[in-house]
Amino acid sequence: MFILLGMPVVQIIIFGFALTNEVKNSKIAILDPSNDAASTSLIAQIEASRYFEVDQVIHSADEIEPIFKKGRIKLAVIFPASFNEDLQHFNKAQVQLIADASDPNVANTLTNYATAVIMDYQDRITQGRKLPYTISTEMRMLYNPELKGAYNFVPGVMAMVLLLVCTMMTAITIVREKEMGTMEIMLVSPMKPFRIVIAKAVPYLLLSSVNITSILLLSVFVLDVPINGSLLLLVFESLLFTLVSLALGLLISSRAESQQTAMFISLVALFLPTVMLSGFMFPVENMPLPLRTVSNIVPAKWYYSIVKSVMIKGIGLHAVWKETLILTGMLIFFLGLAIKNFKIRLA
């Protein structure tokens, strides 16, 4: 009953307010070697818009690549050394926009917003002058120059498939044994409960490995999504995430008494948050604080971020160790809870 009446309310609120494709307060970096009147006022105008928030000011072009790899900023605005001079003498100047296009939608939106702000500034300073100023923007899409959607959805699909196969199927098969009564006989046998559970989980671990392989093969050879980082690391992280999903499935199975319940819990408690809160469909950065906090306990969020970093940005373990550690922690926590909750009796 609560589900029937509460669901629409929750969904309207979540979709209406929290999950938007709109980008707000994106963190950007500024490289402004000219540091003159024109560039400063343009930066001020960029910062004044509600779309951007200057996170750091960098001083050399070498710093651009590393800060993108950290994944903190989404856009960098680069001014030439002589921005004001160019503008005054030639009536035209250039600004370079570099966007993190591992999420092509966000990158696209951000560069469009930035261009709009710059055009706005250009129009303002041109007012009442015969010769118009022209500020041209040059865009560079980092990691995904063609803005391919596949770069975004391959990591997302990987997270979803692994979660679906491992969590839902593990939960359902174990609960099925309970429903069929076979669990009853199995418990009255020398088989250790732990062995029963592991035996149930192993086939899905193997199935998931096949899934990981086929998704990666398809994305590399059919969708032309490169694996820029280490394949070994990617496989390792995927297995880690698979294990987390298996542990979650075991946890659900120890609680649920019927296959429907198991399926329902898997879908509502795992699938929806994965779709909505992992950053795959809607950027997490723009969500209100409560949802952002909730998104931290969604394992897929961390996995999604790892896959994007390793596969698309091509960075190594040193950059994703935090996410890896979080996933490992989740694995230990969920597995421990699942084993503790496993019923050695019927009730």
Partner: peptide
């Protein structure tokens, strides 16, 4: 309970084989 589970045979009321 572990020792008992090794030495009893149990046939539940409902058919519970695979």
């Amino acid at each position: 309970y572990k020792l008992i589970r090794q030495r009893v045979g149990y046939m539940p009321g409902r058919f519970s084989l695979y």
